[in-house]
Nucleic acid binder design. Structure first.
Length: 222
DNA sequence: GCGTGATCATGA
DNA sequence: TCATGATCACGC
């Protein structure tokens, strides 16, 4: 792990220095082996970039760069220039929701300042040959935050009302709620339709690809 | 089991 | 072709 950057500018400079390099080059510098593919190493790209940028959080529920309040997200990009996958944000709380509002929500803090790093993601490009793109430091615009908040409130209302199992990935304009678990046997507690506790799959909030595509597009137009 | 990092794989 | 629902690995 490289030393953690002390300032936002230092982090940005370092991220810019990675642009144009391949994952193979970055793995070699880090002394990390490149897996044949991501089937069994889905978080490998993210962790490789964390190493190079000196992220500190590990698996703690805090921003990757705590002192800077910045979250790091790598995002796989296809030949068409648009994201290939939705972006996981954080686990969704399913119980103990009294006093929870958008303003003090975990997800709002997570998304307050994000360093997006696009990486070539097409599966027919060997992992080691994929290039890292130019970083984008993003904070939600007023409009974006309003849309995020609207989706979040809709989803959280359903969770409070015991309708978590009726939620599908189609709910929400830009934010969606989907399973986030080791497998379909992992269960956690949630509210049932009559307020009784039920066991259900843990869920996570994800940003839909059309939204992240919009972010990147706005950046490239500016 | 939870939270971190996400992508896989199949049905529509 | 593409998004949804399922899944993989790790530290604790």
């Amino acid at each position: 792990m490289r030393p953690t950057p002390q300032t936002e500018q230092e982090l940005l400079n370092r991220a810019h220095d990675l642009a144009g390099l391949t994952l193979g080059e970055l793995a070699q510098q880090a002394g990390i082996a490149t897996p044949p593919d991501l089937k069994r190493d889905k978080g490998w790209v993210g962790q490789l970039l964390e190493w190079h940028l000196g992220a500190t959080a590990g698996s703690q529920p805090v921003p990757d760069f705590v002192d800077l309040g910045i979250e790091l997200k790598t995002i796989p990009i296809g030949y068409h220039g648009k994201p290939l996958e939705t972006t996981f944000v954080c686990v969704a709380p399913l119980i103990g929701l009294q006093g929870l509002h958008w303003e003090n929500s975990h997800i709002r803090h997570k998304l307050a300042k994000v360093l997006w790093i696009p990486v070539e993601g097409e599966r027919d490009i060997p992992l080691a040959d994929r290039h890292v793109g130019s970083p984008l430091l993003w904070s939600p615009s007023a409009n974006e935050e309003q849309r995020l908040r609207r989706d979040w409130e809709e989803l959280m209302d359903m969770i409070v009302l015991g309708q978590v199992e009726q939620i599908t990935a189609r709910h929400g304009e830009i934010l969606q709620l989907r399973p986030k678990a080791a497998n379909s046997k992992a269960l956690t507690e949630a509210y049932g339709a009559n307020g009784q506790p039920i066991k259900t799959l843990p869920r996570g909030f994800y940003l839909k690809t059309n939204f992240t595509a919009e972010l990147l597009e706005r950046y490239f137009i500016l």
